[in-house]
């Protein structure tokens, strides 16, 4: 088949249209989130003092940070699967969760505390955190990769890593309501290690799944 013939067949296929990436992504997430929620309820559940904790600033900060991170990753990943779309001028979005967490750490260190900073950093849930976040992130990671696959990722590894980080942030939003460690020092240490792991998985998967 020469190129003119190929062009003719492409033109004949013009009636076919793909659904927008954002829509596919949204549908996939709507399917994946209940799975993560079910995993969370069966394996972990809310912490016993959940209602009392909702009045504490550092507890609330965990959700703000994870939600901001998830949204930033989603927005950036959606741009990355749109060739030619400016990505760099949206990368400040990632600074929002980082800045919030940094501000939290400053406040945590400045305020009088009942335990030392190393104790707060090490916390009591590190192992659960490192297991739960990667596992809970698998359904949203799969959903994000399915959605992003509909796009055109010119940088598949980076896009996959952002999908992993975003999925990790979604998982952490659930996990944060179980974890009794609210110190931003704990979040910045252990959540970040868990996120790095999921981002790595996402990058490796993206390399295969997101090429077009």
């Amino acid at each position: 088949m020469d190129t003119n013939e190929l062009v003719r067949s492409l033109a004949a296929d013009h009636g076919w249209r793909a659904r927008p990436v954002g829509m596919v992504l949204a549908v996939a997430l709507v399917v994946a989130l209940p799975v993560t929620a079910a995993m969370f309820i069966m394996a972990l559940g809310l912490r016993p003092d959940f209602m009392a904790a909702t009045g504490r600033a550092f507890f609330i900060l965990k959700f703000i940070v994870t939600a901001a991170l998830a949204l930033a990753c989603l927005a950036l990943a959606l741009r990355l699967v749109q060739p030619g779309a400016p990505v760099r001028n949206a990368s400040w979005l990632l600074a929002v969760p980082v800045g919030l967490l940094a501000a939290g750490i400053v406040a945590d260190l400045a305020l009088p505390q009942t335990s030392g900073w190393t104790a707060r950093l090490i916390g009591s849930n590190a192992r659960v955190c490192l297991t739960a976040i990667p596992l809970l992130s698998l359904p949203p990671l799969i959903a994000l990769l399915i959605g992003l696959r509909r796009g055109a990722a010119t940088r598949p590894m980076l896009t996959g890593a952002l999908a992993g980080l975003g999925a990790g942030a979604i998982a952490a939003t659930f996990y944060a309501s179980h974890c009794a460690d609210d110190s931003p020092l704990f979040v910045a240490t252990w959540y970040t290690i868990a996120w790095a792991l999921v981002a790595l998985i996402g990058a490796l998967a993206g390399r295969w799944v997101l090429r077009f």
Partner: peptide, 22 residues
């Protein structure tokens, strides 16, 4: 197959050359 990822409010050229480069 990827033309739905072009944003109609943006020029077509940069999108095309990003695909071609890839």
């Amino acid at each position: 197959l990827k033309r739905h990822t072009w944003d109609p409010s943006a020029p077509f050229g940069p999108w095309l050359f990003a695909i071609a480069r890839n």
